[in-house]
């Protein structure tokens, strides 16, 4: 899995801890994400930072800015490994 794939997995896991299976269903609305959650596998296609922004937006629809903070927290360790220009805007 790429770093982006891993970030997506971390974010979905964190949201799943809060709201359960709905977290996965919300992520499935982002068409750039190919999700096999039974194996916790995710593949990001196309513009990965933009796809991550869309994923964060999905959770923001539910909880507002708190969801964004939760996503930042989930991704923080992996995000630091990305160059600044590749980091999704919503997670900066």
């Amino acid at each position: 899995m790429t770093l982006f794939d891993q970030i997506v997995v971390k974010i979905i896991q964190q949201q799943e801890d809060i709201i359960g299976p709905i977290a996965v269903e919300q992520a499935e609305h982002v068409k750039e994400l190919k999700i096999d959650w039974s194996h916790h596998q995710v593949e990001v296609s196309g513009n990965a930072p933009a796809a991550l922004d869309k994923l964060v937006e999905q959770y923001k629809i539910l909880f507002g800015q708190i969801a964004v903070e939760t996503c930042k927290e989930a991704a923080s360790n992996l995000l630091s490994q990305l160059p600044a220009e590749e980091q999704p805007k919503s997670l900066r």
């Binding site: 539910l62 909880f63 507002g64 800015q65 708190i66 969801a67 903070e69």
Partner: peptide
């Protein structure tokens, strides 16, 4: 939470 909580769950 009042400043950050939003969305349809609020």
């Amino acid at each position: 939470s009042r400043k950050m909580l939003g969305g349809i769950m609020k």
